[in-house]
Computed example of a mutant assay.
Amino acid sequence: MTVDTASNSGTDVPTEPVNVGSETELNELVDDSGVVLADFYADWCGPCQMLAPIVDNLAAETDAVVAKIDVDANQQLAKAYGVRGVPTLVLFADGQQVEEIVGVQAEEQLRELIQNYTEE
């Protein structure tokens, strides 16, 4: 399987969100990537649907790996991260959780947050 990567970054960052189905998968993604934005969502959630195109843009246009976690299919994983409402975005940098945002946020605000951790 080939991974479509951002051509302008020179790194192996997927340009589309990666669906994560277990805590092991998320841990491996976080361990193997510099910055990961994990989107805990539910298909039935209106705000999650509003956030989806923003998350897609962030995957395509930033140096963060974007992970999508369906809370209905991955209840244990959501519980492990203390997700009480959706959408919840968890940002990881250098293997550590550094931010948690609940609810829909503006794309510019999320982009700035990611840039705080991807630019050195």
Rank of each mutant, 00 (worst) to 15 (best):
A59Y: 11
Q96I: 01
E108H: 14
Y117G: 02
E61G: 03
G10C: 04
W44P: 00
Y81G: 07
E100W: 05
P53Y: 11
A42Q: 13
Q75A: 14
D70V: 01
N116M: 06
N74C: 07
V65H: 03
L29T: 03
G34M: 04
E108V: 15
L113V: 10
T2M: 09
L26N: 04
A60C: 12
E120A: 15
D72F: 00
N8F: 15
L113G: 09
A6P: 11
T62C: 13
V13A: 10
I114E: 00
S22L: 07
V66W: 08
D94Y: 02
V102A: 04
E61P: 05
G21M: 03
V90Q: 09
D63H: 06
Q96W: 02
S33Y: 11
D39Y: 01
E61I: 01
L26R: 05
E108I: 13
N8E: 15
N116Q: 12
V102C: 00
L51V: 07
A78P: 00
N27P: 08
E107Y: 10
F40K: 06
V83S: 06
D94Q: 05
Q97D: 01
I69L: 05
D31S: 13
N19T: 10
K68C: 05
L26P: 05
V83Y: 05
T24E: 14
L113D: 08
Q97V: 00
Q76N: 15
V18G: 01
G46F: 02
N8P: 12
N116G: 13
V30F: 02
T11F: 13
L89C: 07
P53A: 11
T24N: 10
G34C: 02
N19G: 03
V18R: 06
R111K: 13
G82A: 08
G85M: 11
P87G: 11
Q96G: 06
L37R: 03
K68V: 04
S9L: 15
V30A: 00
V36P: 10
D72I: 00
Q75T: 15
K79N: 13
F40W: 07
L113W: 11
V66L: 08
E108T: 15
E108G: 13
D43R: 09
L37G: 04
L29V: 02
T11K: 13
L29I: 01
D4T: 09
L58Y: 07
E28I: 04
T62K: 10
A64Q: 08
E108W: 12
Q115G: 06
Q49C: 12
G10A: 02
I114G: 01
E28S: 09
A42R: 09
V83F: 03
